[in-house]
Design a protein around this nucleic acid. Structure first.
Lengths: 342, 342
DNA sequence: ATGAAAGCGCTAACAG
DNA sequence: CTGTTAGCGCTTTCAT
């Protein structure tokens, strides 16, 4: 054989295959992409396929993407990807996204959403971008470079689609539930991060409670981190005074926080739900196991992710791409199967 | 001005910038990559930077990667990314990985690990690949095309690195704990999926129990899916017979399963931990909240992900890249702060 | 200090 | 049916 001009440890290229099969790279491309239908002799195709196999050739996706001017990566960024809520959103997103699109997750380097991460996302050449629970200030500083979907931002922005949970319905459902049980003095435990969506949850609840003659009667308690541990600590400190002030139900911005309140109640000897009702938003998959007496509002996180995936799929690979306007899912809030106090 | 030859809606290219700043693309490249140090006149640099700003130019990463023959994407695939255990691994992985590397998550389309997903991963041009809990049959059918790390595979394969949790130590810790509390008849609830790592957990426990005069005295119960709900259902069915056969402790392959057993116990009126001790592997972040009386073994999932990230970072961007041999972390298993029965 | 030119590996017209 | 050719947008010698 003539001297080998190529490093054998390198991954085989279409040229290598073409050489071995004694055809042109164009033919290899056709076959490798399954576009050979009736355009290439069966015999030629056989030779090429064999060469592909022996050389273990695979298309270089980078080169392919460049040549086609195609982008196939959708990025997802959330403030706290480790949080079960976002895991659920991600689950819905990833499992519904068109298989031709690949999903990459940008992990915030700092504690909450950081601008740097998002900037990095914008800088890369993405086919689409999903921003979960971005804060308003963040949105002020960025301009989309590709189809962008805002999840639970609690607001709309020109040029970006946004999808929100139906918080109002959630508030209605929860208020109905609580008032129906005879509660009128409610406390709220949330997270201090500036997320409109979190405020919305609280506000919707308050509004609906008031419409029913009840109310959040003590100042909100806001913890720094969305963790069960921080809620526990805070609840240990404030529960006694809440009880003293006649509070009979506490609602948390997220189930994770509610777990902490439940644990605090147990430690303080406050019985749930007899003495105190505890509720949270999200209804994580194991929430009912954590405590059958926990009330949670199903925010349908997975469905939210799936909706985003469908929208993106339509925009990016769909035949009838809709204008990237604002769309909004209405997801019904429902009460959990919690056994309410009688 | 001369007629514009370029579609203005297109993203600006280096050529556009060069044209506007009246320099060559080479110069633009230098500046955009921050390699202009002393190689370009301050005045030229200023002009180019301004052009970059006005055109909102950003490097096309696809083209850049192609030109440099560089790959910067690490893929992660796990059987069930929605499972909190894998979320933790992912968290450790994503937050420790070098910022120059991007992480993409491949979501299995079918129920468990599917070959298709992994094939897709192998086919793409990846810088690295992390396979979490791959089954043996899967590993038999694939050959790595890039640095590959096996997490919790329970085995080693030529050409791939593997990192496992120190299951033996976990078994020792748990056996010590249980036997120390006076248990001698233990039951095991796991998942039926063929994952050596899950068998290893069970076997290590059994081995260590026997070394201490105790044992798993009833046949293992294996559920199909790693969910709290399926464990609940199964536990409701088998707990009575276990109790009847003198079982005083049940160990689950994962905390998620243990939650189900806890709930079943409550429903059946079996008190935990007085009448029955319940333990699980993993120690998820909220496990102690689920029930303070749940014993769990911390498998340090997050640390596992972080180790993988460190290894990958070293191999891919590290100065002193080590040969991709097998490395193994020894992570200490520890008991949770569960209040054991007295 | 700057530019011209080659080429990364692939795809898509267009010839033949 | 198959090959030739011209890029995709960027990086990188090598001249000037």
């Amino acid at each position: 054989m003539s001297g080998m001009t190529r490093d054998p440890s390198r991954r085989a290229t279409a040229r290598d295959v073409a050489q071995l099969a004694e055809v042109s790279v164009a033919t290899v491309s056709l076959i490798a992409n399954g576009k050979a239908a009736g355009r290439v002799t069966p015999e030629t195709e056989r030779r090429v396929r064999e060469a592909i196999r022996t050389l273990d050739y695979r298309i270089n996706t980078t080169a392919s993407a460049l040549a086609q001017g195609r982008r196939d990566t959708v990025a997802f960024v959330s403030p706290d990807p480790g949080n079960p809520f976002f895991s659920l959103v991600l689950d819905g997103l990833a499992s519904t996204l068109d298989p031709s699109l690949s999903l990459t997750i940008l992990w915030p380097r700092s504690d909450d959403y950081d601008l740097v991460t998002v900037q990095r996302a914008l800088a890369g050449d993405l086919a689409g971008l999903v921003l979960a629970s971005p804060g308003s200030e963040l949105l002020d500083t960025i301009s989309p470079t590709c189809p962008t979907i805002l999840l639970e931002s609690g607001e709309t922005r020109p040029g970006m689609s946004s999808m929100d949970l139906d918080v109002e319905a959630a508030g209605t459902g929860l208020a109905d539930h609580l008032v129906g049980l005879g509660h009128s003095r409610v406390a709220y435990l949330g997270v201090s991060r500036d997320k409109s969506t979190l405020h919305h949850r609280r506000d919707a609840l308050h509004r609906q409670l008031q419409a029913r003659g009840a109310a959040i009667t003590v100042p909100d308690e806001l913890v720094e981190r969305m963790t069960t541990a921080s809620a526990l600590e805070r609840a240990l400190a404030v529960l006694p005074s809440w009880i003293e002030r006649g509070v009979t139900a506490v609602v948390c911005g997220d189930d994770l926080l509610a777990y902490g309140v439940l644990e605090a109640s147990a430690r303080l000897g406050i019985s749930v739900p007899q003495q105190l009702s505890v509720a949270g938003f999200n209804n994580l998959p194991f929430s009912s196991m954590v405590s059958p007496s926990l009330t949670s509002v199903d925010l349908s996180a997975r469905e939210l992710g799936a909706s985003a995936a469908r929208a993106l799929t339509e925009m990016l690979v769909g035949a009838d791409a809709p204008a990237p306007t604002t769309l909004r899912t209405h997801i019904v809030a429902r009460e959990s199967t919690a056994r309410a106090r009688s």
